[in-house]
């Protein structure tokens, strides 16, 4: 069996005796897009830096296509393309000269490949101009181009849509999905734009204070429905939910309660409420978003 494209095992990092990352486990297979989400200071960038070998982990291991980043850096990194934070390039060089610099560092990258990625990110017209004259969005495109140069199996993108306009974001999302599906690239995207991550990713991992608090597929998140009821006896209703279906209800203000229910059970629940003599004014199913889950999980966090 092929090893996963990316495997993090109990990854830890202490900086100045402070635990920044407290044991992260994660695997990512080919053609999967993982959104790596978390509030500021949760440890997203530190984790990414450990994956690409910029920071040495205190404990644990990073494996890329089965090669350990600590013991087999060259072979591991041969499979990685990345943008770490903002895509820094040499501003005194042109876009093309920047890409040539990088293609000089890897024998596999041909001149033809360089032209190919330039076209892929749509920078043909400005590629001979100095990077200092580029807009943030163009730098972002150049950053993506350099990450794709070596046809990586793993693409790591740290906040990739910063500075792109709405059309650029859509275009970028389509590009990412195409790369994953057509070239079977595993893509690891960190972002704080949740609505964007929801559209772009297959799965998400939410990191909070250095540990992953939740991993889920985006599909599952969207399928979890919450229902809000307004009725005359919320205490009784909550008790019924708990007794019959084991569902914890949240009592909101006055006569309103909310609870997460599975699919297709709402009619049944309502039927029982009525049979038990509860006067039901209304029940509204609400589709959950990634944002709801994120805020639930990271509530009350302060930047560490």
């Amino acid at each position: 069996m092929q090893p996963p494209v990316l495997e993090l095992v109990d990854l830890k990092k202490n900086i100045k005796n402070k635990e920044i990352i407290r044991g992260i486990n994660l695997t990512l297979g080919p053609a999967e897009i993982l959104g790596f989400l978390g509030p500021n200071g949760a440890g997203k960038t530190t984790t990414i830096r450990m994956i690409v070998g910029l920071i040495r982990p205190t404990a644990g291991s990073v494996k890329i296509c089965g090669y350990s980043i600590a013991d087999d850096f060259i072979r591991a990194m041969s499979n990685v393309g990345c943008i770490i934070e903002s895509p820094e390039m040499y501003k005194f060089l042109s876009g093309m000269e920047n890409l040539r610099q990088l293609s000089n560092m890897d024998k596999r990258i041909t001149r033809q490949r360089v032209d190919e990625v330039v076209e892929l990110v749509g920078l043909q017209k400005r590629i001979e101009d100095k990077v200092s004259t580029y807009s943030l969005g163009m730098r972002q495109r150049l950053g993506i181009a350099q990450a794709l140069l070596c046809r990586p199996k793993l693409l790591i993108l740290d906040e990739p849509v910063n500075g792109l306009d709405p059309a650029g974001i859509t275009e970028f999302r389509n590009l990412i999905r195409r790369l994953a599906h057509e070239e079977e690239m595993a893509i690891f995207v960190s972002s704080h734009l949740l609505s964007e991550a929801q559209l772009m990713c297959d799965q998400v991992a939410i990191i909070r204070q250095g540990s992953i608090v939740k991993t889920a597929t985006v599909k599952d998140i969207l399928n979890t429905e919450t229902v809000e009821w307004r009725l005359d006896n919320p205490v009784k209703a909550a008790r019924l939910l708990k007794e019959k279906w084991g569902i914890e209800a949240l009592r909101e203000n006055g006569n309103t309660i909310t609870a997460a229910v599975g699919e297709n059970r709402l009619e049944l629940i309502n039927q029982v409420f009525v049979n038990e003599g509860i006067e039901l004014r209304y029940s509204i199913p609400r589709q959950n978003t990634l944002e709801d889950m994120f805020l639930d999980l990271t509530e009350g966090d302060e930047i560490a």
């Binding site: 690409v52 070998g53 910029l54 850096f73 060259i74 072979r75 990194m77 041969s78 990685v80 990345c82 770490i84 934070e85 903002s86 820094e88 390039m89 040499y90 501003k91 990088l102 560092m105 890897d106 350099q146 070596c150």
Partner: peptide, 14 residues
């Protein structure tokens, strides 16, 4: 200072 160190240290070169 300009961050490009990240660019050259994340290549497959020791």
């Amino acid at each position: 200072a300009n961050g490009t160190i990240k660019l050259i240290l994340t290549r497959n070169i020791p």
